[in-house]
Design a protein around this nucleic acid. Structure first.
Lengths: 229, 229
DNA sequence: GAGACTTGTCACAAATGTGTCACATTAAAT
DNA sequence: ATTTAATGTGACACATTTGTGACAAGTCTC
């Protein structure tokens, strides 16, 4: 669904938020200080960052500016968290480009609502949401997939799965990662859901179904070039 | 790039918005009341107007009507800024030509996204008040819709819904977007209103009703070519 | 004020998507 | 070659989403 990075030095807070997010099927990352936050953000490119302003090592504003200065991390949505709730600070955060601002102490419910709100705005129109590769075209704005010019009807789950596979084409996606990213299963629950969906995807891809390769005991991988030729 | 006129009586708000716009390289104009707004709009012909509805001298509705009545200013895109809460009837009636709504209080980032969205839409879809496509004709001035030459009676809500669907024909319109653009619901409120109106529209479109396609758990889409043949 | 519209909500029906299971098949390990 | 574990596959039940008709509140017209 969406990946969210929680940046806060208090572990209790992180866990509280993480629990709530996971229950709503988000993929959760955590960072305890500013430097770690920037490092993880650059590596994982989450969809949204919950950023506490009071941080050791590098404070929230510094993190913010770093992220906005970097082309890769620049489009990531950011919700500011802070203990202080002054108006000028709010304006400061927002005018810096933050997507929203939540004051501590906050109710998890409120935070969830803000998160959903921000994601629904940001997520649907990311630039460069179209992946093309000769045979196929994946349009994340339109939520459509074309194979050899023809549109292929996919359900939401199938689409999400295909997005993940194609966006890291030629790279193994581990079962656990897929389950976490698409279904939000955090523990490696014993489930055959993934297999079933892979099967359905292959079916819909027809003759190109074999592009989804099985890496036994590891996961699946989408091959950008058709190896069967 | 693009010129944007901000119409709001509160200077703080204007400045906050202006700052954000300038950072993204837009040309910014400002007006503090309705009369000034109309004057500047006519003279400068901005690409987009951010229009607060509560204004001294001449309120937002008046400004809106003036602008839409004037041939020169008529094609300017308009984003309404409204107080949170239910949209009253006047808005419903007039909102037909507005390109989007944003409810106060809003975050600048959100506003920026909406602005980009509207501008890109307007550019790709030169805002002709009449849309034709063989079978059907949509007249936004007269608020009339013709199907195969025959006029079809639509209520204002149905008409607005159809406008949005047809103007982005062959494109999925997500439930949330539709609810926001037609009803002004900012949060993805749980409601069946949309479904009901879709049903009514399909009914009135008769044999062409199936052109409104359901994309399960995503939204609806109007198909410009009749796929049932 | 009566009557015709319009519109949002509700309850229920229909349609569709999704996860699990049992069993078949395949690949790896010994 | 045999065993073992992982994956493929079709069927099925359940959950979710959408379609639909009815209704009540609110508007508008006359």
């Amino acid at each position: 669904m969406a990946t969210i990075l929680i940046v806060d030095d208090e572990q209790d807070i992180r866990e509280l938020i993480a629990m709530n997010l996971q229950r709503e099927a988000y993929d959760v990352l955590e960072a305890a200080d500013g430097l770690e936050a920037v490092a993880i953000a650059k590596k994982e490119l989450p969809d949204l960052i919950l950023l506490d302003l009071m941080l050791p090592e590098k404070d929230g504003y510094g993190v913010f500016q770093d992220l906005k200065a970097n082309k890769k991390t620049q489009p990531i949505a950011i919700i500011m968290l802070t203990a202080r709730g002054k108006l000028d600070e709010r304006i400061m955060g927002l005018s810096l480009g933050a997507d929203d601002y939540v004051c501590k102490p906050f109710s998890p419910k409120e935070l969830m609502l803000r998160i959903k709100n921000v994601l629904s705005r940001v997520q649907t129109h990311p630039a460069g949401a179209i992946t093309q590769n000769g045979d196929f075209k994946l349009d994340k704005n339109e939520l459509k997939f074309y194979l050899c010019g023809e549109e292929i009807d996919l359900t939401i789950t199938e689409f999400k799965l295909l997005v993940v596979l194609i966006e890291s084409a030629d790279t193994v996606q581990e079962r656990g990662d897929l389950l976490r990213r698409i279904w939000g299963y955090n523990d490696m629950i014993q489930t055959r859901t993934l297999d079933t969906h892979i099967k359905r995807l292959r079916e819909k891809l027809g003759s190109h179904g074999n592009r989804i390769e099985t890496l036994r005991s590891v996961g699946y991988q989408f091959n950008s070039s058709d190896s069967s030729n």
